[in-house]
Design a protein around this nucleic acid. Structure first.
Lengths: 339, 339
DNA sequence: CTTGGCACTCTCGCACGATGAGTGCCAGCA
DNA sequence: TGCTGGCACTCATCGTGCGAGAGTGCCAAG
């Protein structure tokens, strides 16, 4: 038996199972793919593949089904990328053009991904830590109450209300605005803690109490405990593959509600253009044992600003998902870089 | 047959069906409720109720199940409000205290509601139209590009980027900020169109082009086409009552993804403290024919700032949902009024 | 190493009958 | 007039048994 043919058989099993969602037998394989050998030979190969853990049979005398390990080998060595159809290209640009702000971009993105792949889509907001300050606005709501509005180069806008120890005037606020912006503009938030920590020492003494309060809030809520956000869409697609889930889709829905879980799913993407696939049991979360996640980072440069991806049954069309995810990430990477 | 007993029978049917999720028969009714009559009598009453359309049998020789009409009569005349348990009261305040901003408040609210009722929860952002301007910040991003940041008295923050026809200086921006705020502060957005329309005429001629651009953006994106938002939570609870849904929960999930649909669900709440119940087919949306929605407006005064509610199977515990929804709405009404 | 043949296993679908819950109707009674 | 017990009837549900079919593993031959 050649090693090559064994892999071909695995590919055939995976492809047929993805297409039909039914255990695939040796005879069917021989018919649908021209492997050049008889069903009996395929049976032998399949027996070996099963021993090695790439496929399994749900019960004796049923066809074979790929295991997580089988899918893994498939995506690592066998999946051929599909080029996007022109219809899909058109869909991407038409879906995303006309977005009015960052929220809008991300919501459209998630709908787009869900529609393209027919799976659940997740998009992370651009990480605050890796964004740079474009502007820090200070709004004078009341004598002892300010609102900080942080605007990043990726279009993210975060605001916090700050209660001050003492009253400040409009003039002071204007002064603060100028001073803080001079120090913070264009700085990445990842390098901001040092700068922010030193801020109180760099201003006139009378401003110090106020500035330290502000610095405290900035440090705490924006950097130490940044509430990274995600947008979710296409949950209805879960029901499409309801048959694939043992029991119910309940644990999956529950996992999706935990945004922390979603963030962790996307958190491991390192660089854009490197699509990551996590298959079945490779997912840490209990409820996602029957699902696969295809994710990638987006962002203009080398480091990802955030991640996006899709989640579906392990028997998903990996090639299609990977190309869709990569294409969308590339597109919104550009979009964020320019806007 | 007394009219009273007929209603009692209906109540008993509804309550038992809600509790057991199984068609309820005359014998079981006679045992579990002391109606003072025999099963045979109850059978007669049930036959009448069925003729009148309040209950139905899934198939011959099965027990009876309430119809939408039956539930309607039940909530209108028979449902007795349940006082909140102290545990629930405590849950409400502990869940919501410590919220850091509006987003946070609403996300916590939706989780809270979902947990209290074990249904899907929906919370609408405070309507822009009914909010008042607390501050309009203008940020000078680039010579020909400004960002408008609108802060309302309910804590909502909306931003839009504006491309200007010509360049402006920092000083001009400061001037604009002062002028616009003087005219807009404390105005409700509902009455804003007139004021905004007149804005260009009230400023120095050299500012007019800029101001009309700004006015245009304000009018278009914030008032004519305000993107009212909703937060959704507890979708996993749908699976809890999966048995109640004919076929699948698919159409329900799809409806929930259409935020427009959700907004319409909540859009009809008029005044706070008036809980609204829409049962099964009473919902306009096709996918929600098997669900009921319990909603109410929240807000400090007479007019609602927004709506919130829960969505579940028609066989839900209406009394519990209604009290939970009302209590939460009251609570966040206060919260928004003070913060 | 491949192939055809063959016996074996196990799921699936279907028919069948027993069970039992629940109904509708009717005659009797207050 | 309204309530009640009795009774025949209907129909979904469930367990059983059986045949069909798909698929496998093994073996001997090429």
């Amino acid at each position: 038996m050649t090693e090559d043919r064994k892999l071909e058989v695995l590919r055939a099993v995976v492809e047929d199972f993805i297409a039909t969602n039914e255990p695939v037998g040796s005879k069917a394989l021989a018919e649908r793919h021209n492997l050049g050998v008889s069903p009996a030979t395929i049976r032998n190969d399949m027996a070996v593949l099963e021993e090695e853990g790439y496929i399994a049979q749900p019960h004796t005398s049923a066809g074979r089904v790929p295991t997580d390990k089988g899918y893994r080998l498939f995506v690592d060595r066998l999946a051929s990328l599909k080029p996007l159809s022109t219809a899909e290209r058109r869909a991407i640009s038409s879906f995303l053009e006309g977005a009015v702000d960052l929220d809008d971009v991300l919501h459209r993105t998630v709908r787009l991904l869900a529609q393209l792949t027919q799976h659940v889509a997740v998009v992370q907001y651009p990480s605050l830590a890796r964004s740079a300050v474009r502007h820090l606005e200070i709004v004078h709501l009341a004598p002892t109450r300010l609102m900080l509005v942080l605007i990043t180069d990726t279009g993210r806008v975060e605001q916090r209300v700050v209660e001050l120890p003492g009253a400040v005037t409009e003039e002071t606020v204007a002064e603060l605005r100028t001073t803080l912006n001079a120090r913070l503009r264009d700085r990445r938030l990842a390098e901001a803690p040092d700068i922010i920590g030193e801020l109180p020492e760099t201003v006139a003494p009378r401003l110090r109490p106020v500035v330290s309060t502000l610095a405290g809030v900035l440090l705490e809520t924006l950097i130490e405990r940044p509430d990274e956000r995600v947008v979710l869409g296409g949950t209805a697609n879960l029901t499409r593959s309801a048959l694939d889930f043992p029991g119910t889709i309940r644990p999956v829905l529950e996992a999706l509600e935990e945004h922390v879980v979603l963030l962790r799913l996307l958190g491991e993407v390192e660089s854009p253009s490197r699509v990551m696939v996590r298959i079945g049991g490779e997912n840490a979360h209990e409820g996602l044992r029957a699902t696969s996640v295809v994710s990638v980072g987006y962002g203009a440069g080398h480091t990802a600003l955030g991640g996006l991806g899709v989640l579906g049954p392990t028997r998903m069309d990996y090639a299609a998902s990977m190309t869709a995810v990569a294409a969308v990430a590339r597109y919104i990477g550009q979009l964020l870089a320019q806007g």
